[in-house]
Design a protein around this nucleic acid. Structure first.
Lengths: 195, 195
DNA sequence: GAACAGAGGTTAACAGTGTTAAGTAAACTT
DNA sequence: AAGTTTACTTAACACTGTTAACCTCTGTTC
């Protein structure tokens, strides 16, 4: 196996097990049986390595979402199962999920550009469902793509509150998730308010 | 002025100007004219200092929210202006906002307990509006407190996507915010679906 | 075959980090 | 006056990401 791939695997292993704080270049290198500087032959710097990990993590999340997609179901049902899956996945793979939103902007000024086509495709996945829902008039949106991002943002918010332990101790996590999904989905479906 | 207070002020100054990454103990100490170790006489460690900053930041955010509260308006309108204010505040004070959600869980295992009454009171602020909306049957919620957390989470998600520069370059930020607020608010108002 | 170029690694070092242990000097208490 | 406490200091430990310089093996070209 190439060292590059081994670095990625080991990094991810450390990341998932011990969190980002413990993921040092020397530790990664040590576990690969090489010196720390060798990593710099395969990655520009730590952020660059992190970027590769982010891509992987998003790809995995996207995969998890795709697996629960069921064209037989209604768009609303699909949206709900996607929301549920997103949250479950994030809570079951907290360390990996955190990577996705961890790298701070100042450390990576020119984020998208060529890379991150996978990332976009993950959003397109949601946008597609929403677009279909819009066509069959079960969903109430203006721009499907923007709504996809909105949905994603809302889900991330819910996950973030839980992972960062910001949830009130009085509130049962399950109940919070259920109510959050309710609110989020309701925000997307057609409102048939009688004149 | 007490050194403790000066440390807090200087920390915040550095944090807002240069971001968390540049906020080192030695730098704070240097700018206070003392040695780095002095900080440990007033704060248990860096996380502890950060916690104090988080409290302050949340208090400021809460203050900004309280200022736009207007009992004359409908609950739905108030909810909307709160949402708008939350997002604006976060985007206008990005470094300060980031503090609120930055400290990672593993670094602070026992978060709430005695402290953070202010934090809770910020949520209660939202919960109050929601509770009133529920009473006058303009809002559709089960638990007001949980819905308050849900609203907060959703708003944080929207902000987070923008601050972390995860928004698609094709999407105008303003339009994203507008559509997000629409979806979020809609998720809370009563749905009068005709049987 | 000899000379060269580059790939893929090395060690040593720099400048920085959070944090602790031990020491000091002034102020308060008895 | 002696002792204790308070608020600080310096020195050091064990790390961090990153760079410069060096080495060694491989493949290519004359």
């Amino acid at each position: 196996m190439s060292l590059r791939k081994e670095i990625l695997e080991v990094s991810k292993e450390i990341l998932i097990k011990d969190g980002f704080g413990k993921m040092s270049m020397r530790k990664i290198a040590g576990r690969c049986g090489v010196s720390a500087t060798s990593i710099y032959l395969h990655f520009k710097n730590k952020d660059d390595l992190l970027l590769a990990l982010i891509e992987e993590s998003i790809e995995n999340l996207k995969q998890a979402l795709m697996e629960v997609l069921d064209p037989a179901k209604s768009m609303i049902d699909q949206l709900e199962v996607l929301a549920r899956t997103y949250i479950s996945y994030a809570l079951e793979h907290p360390q990996e999920y955190e990577v996705i939103y961890m790298v701070r902007p100042e450390e990576m000024p020119k984020y998208p550009k060529e890379k991150f086509r996978d990332v976009r495709s993950a959003y397109e996945l949601l946008a597609d469902i929403i677009r279909k829902g819009k066509r069959e008039e079960s969903l109430d949106v203006e721009s499907s793509l923007i709504s996809a991002y909105t949905l994603w943002a809302q889900l991330h918010g819910v996950v973030s509150v839980i992972l960062n332990k910001r949830l009130d101790t009085r509130i049962p996590q399950d109940q919070f998730i259920e109510q959050a999904i309710d609110h989020i989905i309701k925000g997307f479906v057609i409102q048939k308010t009688p004149a």
